[in-house]
Design a protein around this nucleic acid. Structure first.
Lengths: 156, 156
DNA sequence: GAGTTTTACTTAATATATTAACTATCTTAA
DNA sequence: TTAAGATAGTTAATATATTAAGTAAAACTC
């Protein structure tokens, strides 16, 4: 099949698509997230909804903006996701007496129970990942990811 | 602000959200992609459309399924993206004489010119990233990402 | 070689991402 | 204190992601 042969690079300066950094990060993330998605979909949750549950777990209430920042979800997306989670009875919104603009979000009892139910399954996935790559390399990966992120944000 | 204090972990087994692997990969990727997006949006392209242009560059024609695989875009998304790119005159679809089911996609002359115009800007972004993290660490990052991806796919 | 299964692609339905614009509140400076 | 500016959240418009279902062409089986 000729279409899968490596193409002749028309520019020697541009890295092959297969090895571009955004693609490498995307492919690896997809491979990782797929494992988590298998668990979460059994409980009717998306990856983003799980991030929100995780961020709210053990907290009294969190402003939408802080929640969005911690979950790496932009406010317009967060708005819709929270609406659906509220309708499903997973979160509640409370007024913030200290600031009339902001809104506090908190888990319902049902959501807390769901989180406790899912946690061990997620822990098992983490264990599998650590077993696959090895603890040492996994730690090294975290360090490099955070170094690159920090460097990019410093220079922006 | 009490809401930003580190929360008490309700389970010692689950990594803090800020340091979860999917989150780390997502945050780093977002930081990286933001640089590319600045370039691409000036040319009216999305990140996905650029991936497609890159994959088709220097090729006669590529089946939709192979294109989707290389770009890490699922076929249903690919279908819509190609429709918009075709309307904009960036790609053409040709019948595949060897297989009536598949469709070959290729760049138009306009798209090829656009790619050549954008390439140096993208190369500059890569150079900045390499400068920020250092060539050695960047190579190490690629190796770890690919090792994890390969390991996960092997065990699936 | 007709019937079944697989493959390539599209359509449909729902969820999320991205950018811009909008509303209400809060802050600040004159 | 009041008018300009900043902040928190939402809405709107468009693009993409995800899963399921649908369609047409190949490949396979008997």
């Amino acid at each position: 099949m000729a279409s899968t042969l490596p193409k002749a690079p028309s520019s020697p300066l541009l890295r092959d698509l297969t090895h571009s950094l955004p693609m490498a990060l995307l492919r690896t993330r997809e491979a990782v997230v797929q494992r988590f998605r298998e668990v979460l979909s059994r409980h009717g949750l998306t990856e983003q909804q799980w991030r929100i549950l995780r961020a709210l777990d053990g907290r009294e209430g969190l402003e939408v903006s802080l929640l969005a920042e911690q979950c790496q979800i932009l406010p317009p997306s967060m708005s819709g996701i929270l609406k659906r989670m509220e309708q499903r009875g997973l979160i509640v919104r409370k007024a913030n007496r200290a600031d009339g603009r902001s809104i506090l979000v908190a888990l319902t009892g049902e959501a807390q129970a769901l989180v406790e139910q899912i946690k061990p399954e997620i822990v098992a996935v983490y264990a599998e990942i650590e077993r696959i790559l090895g603890r040492r390399k996994l730690e090294q990966l975290y360090i490099l990811l955070e170094a690159l992120e920090a460097g990019l944000k410093r220079n922006s």
